[in-house]
Write a protein that binds this DNA or RNA. Sequence first.
DNA 1: TCAGCTATTTAGTGTTGCTATGTACTAGTA
DNA 2: TACTAGTACATAGCAACACTAAATAGCTGA
Lengths: 109, 109
Amino acid sequence: MSKQLTEMLKGTLEGIVLAILSGRPAYGYEITAWLRDQGFSDIAEGTVYALLVRIERRGLVDVEKVPSEKGPPRKVYSLNAQGREYLEEFWRNWSFLAERLEQLHEGGN
Amino acid sequence: MSKQLTEMLKGTLEGIVLAILSGRPAYGYEITAWLRDQGFSDIAEGTVYALLVRIERRGLVDVEKVPSEKGPPRKVYSLNAQGREYLEEFWRNWSFLAERLEQLHEGGN
DNA sequence: TCAGCTATTTAGTGTTGCTATGTACTAGTA
DNA sequence: TACTAGTACATAGCAACACTAAATAGCTGA
């Protein structure tokens, strides 16, 4: 992962994961695979798990342990009411930032 | 500043400042004032100065000391060739990230 | 038995923006 | 003179975050 993108991910990766969970419950390994699929090619396994622990500790998600046929049990996360609220705030902040940057990008050429 | 936005600024603030400098040379106090004007209301004075020191150390900008009529001399920064290259890379990374997030935002409703 | 995939955890590191404070120069004013 | 306020920059210490690296654990097929 380029260093720039790594720094940009701070704060936004959390929003990305919450947005994924707003669509459907998911577990860490699955989320990591999906992110890699989407072009976040070198996303670190540990990064996602640490993030999941954080948002759980903050009460943004509910967790359920579900047995897997292919390995150790999965920890399936789903967004709860508080998480949904937090996600909305994230979108507001993101939109604000994206607008400012778009202006700069257009003006810059 | 909301905690979310603070985290999002990590990595992007650098791009924002470089983008400003790509338009015209500027000094720290001026940049801070402009940011506040643009809605980054609580941006910390020290944050911008530290950032400027960093991008100078990395050779992305040239610096010139210019006397001010109203206070101590200004350090005027201007983007150099290396900085322009770095800024282009920033825009590529930003576009990548923004696209992914836009998809998530649309799909999420 | 052992390699390989699935699945999670965690200690340690570097980078970043923020807090808080200090310094320095000028002009206005009481 | 002494003070206040605006302009302008610098920096030590902190918290949060993504990454590195390595470990653990369950299952399957050769």
